Amino acid sequence: MAADAPRLNIWAVSDGRAGIEAQVDGLAQAVARLRPAEIVIKRIGWRWGLGRLPSRLNPGLLATLTPGSGLHPPWPDIWIAAGRATLPLSTRLRRLSGGRTFVVQTQHPRQPIKAFDLVVPPIHDRLTGANVLPIVGSPNRLSPAQLAAELERFRDKLESLPRPRVAVIVGGASKAFGLPAERAARMGREVAEAVTASGGSVLVSFTRRTPQAAREILRAEWARLPGVVWDDRGDNPYFAFLAAADAILVTEDSTNLATEAAATGKPVHVLALEGRSEKFDRFHHDLRERGSARPFAGRLESWDYTPLAETDRAAAELLRRYDARN
């Protein structure tokens, strides 16, 4: 592809949930690091739940989107989508665009994959096919440049904290996992004891899935330690925490959180929750096999490994296939 090729127009499409949007935006940004591109974030919704119907039962597809979805021609060069809400459109985008748009779906679409130019699922979903590129974990927005920029933004709040600085990223409730009060209290004590023994500090970030009761228990426990417990007010220091950390503790319920942690090259300790998932067992096994993560065993450890760069690998393959088609 010539160096003076026109800028790509990329739509990153989801239902707006933070974890889903992070995947499509992250992959789009990785493509833009390789090729000049304009990225447009699209957040879609469906009237009357029609997005759950098979496409053939919703012939007026675009008309049943909620106001503000902003999906209409001209269609982009590359469509990167994730989540169930996007599937009625993703599966028809090649036809709607007259074959012009290169259609990419992250995650396992749970339906025939022939409608997509490329599917980027996690390896632990065990999806295969000629148009499938399995990766460890999920696409993410993390890059060395972004980490450096975010660390600089929050430097005044973080640089004086004692080392080791331990980022603690807490998820919580999902279909497979839970964080009840008893487990939160035990986790709080175990992490506090490990950080105290190390002489370090904490950088704590909760997610929307963290139950309020667990959040209050953990906040009270960790507020006694040197460090920062983000209170959801002001700019989110999540990426700055990852950049400043010497070690990262992350709960086992989120592929996104663990993947982003492993992309830093910092030691990643996985915090156990209540519940179990075979898919997540496979995912965490993959991280252990690569040397990225270990189960948290009540103490902080230090080791080296090659940072996970699966998003960049997916972006390079996406462009290779896009160029081959065009």
Rank of each mutant, 00 (worst) to 15 (best):
N140H: 15
P144W: 10
R325Q: 14
E190I: 07
G265A: 07
G129A: 05
P162F: 03
P307T: 01
L34P: 04
N58T: 14
A197T: 13
L218W: 07
L271W: 12
I169P: 11
R47A: 13
P162N: 13
R189S: 12
V250D: 03
V195I: 15
L93M: 15
L127N: 06
A315Y: 08
R94Q: 14
P112Q: 08
A261Y: 14
W79R: 04
I20T: 09
A213T: 13
D235S: 15
H269K: 00
T255G: 00
E216R: 12
E152A: 11
G19R: 04
R290H: 11
A12Q: 04
V24W: 13
R33D: 06
A85N: 15
G129N: 10
I80S: 00
R320L: 13
S55Y: 08
D117C: 15
K279L: 02
W303G: 02
F296R: 10
R100F: 05
V103G: 03
D117K: 05
Q111L: 12
A258T: 01
L133M: 12
V132S: 11
D25H: 10
G19W: 00
A30I: 07
R186P: 00
A293K: 14
A262M: 09
G178R: 11
L96C: 11
Q29Y: 00
A258S: 07
P237W: 10
S302M: 12
K279G: 02
G98M: 01
E21K: 03
I217Y: 06
A115T: 07
A214D: 05
R165S: 07
A261F: 12
A145L: 11
E152K: 11
F241G: 06
R189N: 07
V228T: 13
R84D: 04
A272F: 00
R126A: 10
R35W: 11
V119Y: 13
T66F: 04
L27Y: 09
R100N: 06
P36S: 05
G70P: 05
